[in-house]
Every structure is written in structure tokens, then in C-alpha cells.
């Protein structure tokens, strides 16, 4: 409750900065003048009285800064400052701004494509795979396995054939073994990640190539 009260107090401070600043100046000035008057009564000269009042007060600039911090939300203020600075810069250089926005947009689209391709392979929610919500992964195990990562084994090809033939719970079974391979285009070759898959792979996933054929 106290934290909410402090947050709300600071938030309202953001919208009353001008008034709070004037109030602070007036309040601190009253303090310094009152202390200086007291110092005069104690026998100091007028110059000495004000200097001493400032000394008792502590660094006036530092106190003001601490006071401002206590009635504001530094994160919001910095964010607002950065935003205004950014908008000013965009307005000043409209040409480079448009270029920057285009680059960001293209970059965003490329990222999205890569993520979708990758997700297609791992069968999570992507539009490329039909009925991905019905897909499940089957893995092999052995007696005494604890279930910890690395404690599973591949499913053998005969097991796959048995499952395909006898299991009524699933429409289709596919095999996917992720492995490395060399991709060569023309006279250029690159090591890349690939998969050895069963022939029904694309049909079962419902993925149709735009050009050519699957298997």
C-alpha cells in the first residue's frame, strides 16, 4: 500500500514539475533567509550570515537534486527525454530517417521468416504445418533411463515400421533425424544443418513445395 502511495505521489510529481520546482525554490530560500537572520542575531556580518546559512544547509545544488529525485520517477523521465530526442533527430534528417525505418521493417520481416522456417522444423505453432496442434514427438528409451536429457535413444527403423502398421492412435508417423550435411550450389559448398527424413515427411506435415515436388 505504501509503495503504491509513493509511486502515485511520484507519478503526479511528473505532471506538476514546474510548480514543485517553484515551491522547492521558495521553501529553500525561506530556510536560508531564516537561518541567515538567526546568524545575524548571533553577531555575524550580513555576508558571513548567508554563507554560514548555506554551509549549515549542506550543498544546495545536491539537496535540490535529491529532492527532485524523491518527487519524480527517473526511469519515465529518462524514457521521455530519449523519446523526444529521437523524434527531434528524425524530424531534422527525414531522408536518413525513412531509410532507417525501412531497414528496421525489412530486418523485422527477415527475422520473422527465419523463425517460421525453424519452427516448421520443430513442429511448433506455425501456419506452414497443417494441424500442428495434433503433432507429437516419440522418442526411444531403455531400461534404467532416468528421463534426464541425453537419456533417450533413437527409435529404430523396424520400430517405426511397426508403429506405422499397428498404431491406430495416429494418422501418420514420420521420421526426422537432424544431422549435418554439405549443401553445394554450383562450385560453392557449405556445411549446413539438415535432416534425414522418411518419404512421407512433407505429406504428413501437409507442406507443399511451391515449385517441384517433395519425395
Amino acid at each position: 500500500m505504501t509503495a503504491i502511495r509513493i509511486f502515485l505521489g511520484r507519478l503526479s510529481g511528473l505532471f506538476r514539475r514546474g510548480r514543485l520546482e517553484r515551491d522547492m525554490e521558495e521553501e529553500f530560500d525561506f530556510h536560508l533567509q531564516s537561518q541567515a537572520a538567526e546568524n545575524l542575531r548571533r553577531g555575524m556580518s550580513s555576508d558571513e550570515a548567508l554563507v554560514a546559512a548555506r554551509r549549515y544547509f549542506g550543498g544546495v545544488a545536491q539537496v535540490k537534486e535529491a529532492y527532485r529525485e524523491a518527487h519524480s520517477l527517473p526511469f519515465f523521465q529518462l524514457f521521455w527525454q530519449d523519446l523526444r530526442f529521437g523524434l527531434r533527430m528524425l524530424r531534422r534528417n527525414p531522408g536518413s530517417s525513412i531509410l532507417a525505418i525501412l531497414c528496421l521493417t525489412l530486418g523485422g520481416r527477415c527475422d520473422q521468416c527465419c523463425v517460421q522456417l525453424d519452427r516448421g522444423g520443430s513442429a511448433s505453432s506455425v501456419p506452414a504445418v497443417a494441424h500442428q496442434e495434433r503433432m507429437m514427438a516419440v522418442d526411444g528409451t531403455y531400461r534404467g533411463a532416468t528421463g534426464a536429457p541425453g537419456n533417450s535413444t533413437d527409435v529404430s527403423w523396424p520400430d517405426f515400421q511397426d508403429l506405422q502398421k499397428n498404431c491406430q492412435l495416429s494418422d501418420a508417423f514420420i521420421v526426422d533425424r537432424i544431422t549435418g550435411s554439405t549443401l553445394a550450389i554450383g562450385d560453392r559448398a557449405d556445411r549446413t544443418t539438415g535432416s534425414v527424413v522418411s518419404a512421407n515427411y512433407f505429406d504428413a506435415l501437409g507442406v507443399r513445395p511451391i515449385l517441384g515436388r517433395g519425395f
Partner: peptide, 28 residues
């Protein structure tokens, strides 16, 4: 006591709801 340190402290007490403030006229 650096007298100035009193003011951020007063502000925090006000934010906590333990003190309130009001402008008025001083002795002088």
C-alpha cells in the same frame, strides 16, 4: 545535521502519508 537533508526526508514522509503540508504565513 545538514539541514538540507531534512527536505527530501520530509517529502518521503509526505508520500508515506505520515505528514501533510500546507503553505501559510511565518512569524515574520
Amino acid at each position: 545535521l545538514n539541514q538540507g537533508t531534512l527536505y527530501p526526508s520530509l517529502l518521503r514522509l509526505e508520500q508515506m502519508g505520515w505528514v501533510t503540508s500546507k503553505w501559510g504565513a511565518s512569524d515574520n
